[in-house]
Design a protein around this nucleic acid. Structure first.
Lengths: 106, 106
DNA sequence: ATACTATTTCCACAATCATCGAAATATGTC
DNA sequence: GACATATTTCGATGATTGTGGAAATAGTAT
């Protein structure tokens, strides 16, 4: 994880529609959701949804897997964990934190 | 915390320059850093820095406190903690997570 | 008041983003 | 092949963002 990747993942989540998408996928669990079901749930045009999904997939936060004609989307927990880990370590957010956990180079 | 606030905070952090600013402030700890020191560290024009700082302050992630002519900026841990908490709870990111921690209303 | 430092606001501009209808593509079925 | 469904790409448009120089403001000291 580096600062550029963290920033791009944060940016991907930093949009209400995309955060809704991601949340829906997390709640759907391991089996995920087809694009069509996401579209129903969020009630947005397919082209808009596809556009947002692409951004989430590009950053690695969401994974897609074709199953016949439908595309199943799932939240990629490991990437989210890495992001949270970065925020906690680099940009420490722990309650009792009083400095970075790793030695600062410069 | 609601989804709009979480998204706007994520968006605020979703920019390399702003994430650098935030990280520098976290590393500076409780005493924070004056705007001028931030400007030296990041080597960017004052107007650009001021613009980014405003976004971080608006979302509550950074707090500013005047000390004579200099403005001291500090990272607001409580807001970051709330954000992380939201991500972990609503958009669960724990390793062993297999669903939301709270009951889903709809 | 003047001068000085710190920071912001104003202004402009190029770049990126969000949106969505229409057309195109992918996959499977008959 | 023809057809149906699922999803993406194309193309256009308005809105927002990132950037930074120049001017303005805030605060302090002399």
């Amino acid at each position: 994880m580096n600062i550029e990747k963290a920033a791009s993942q944060l940016e991907a989540l930093g949009n209400v529609t995309r955060l809704q998408i991601y949340r829906a996928l997390v709640r759907a669990g391991e089996e995920g959701l087809p694009v069509g079901r996401l579209q129903e749930k969020l009630d947005i045009p397919g082209s808009t949804l596809s556009h947002h999904l692409k951004r989430l997939v590009d950053t690695g936060l969401v994974v897609q897997d074709r199953q016949a004609t439908t595309l199943i989307c799932t939240a990629n927990y490991s990437h989210m964990n890495a992001l949270i880990g970065y925020l906690v370590d680099e940009c420490c957010a722990d309650q009792g934190c009083d400095g970075p956990r790793t030695r600062v180079v410069a």
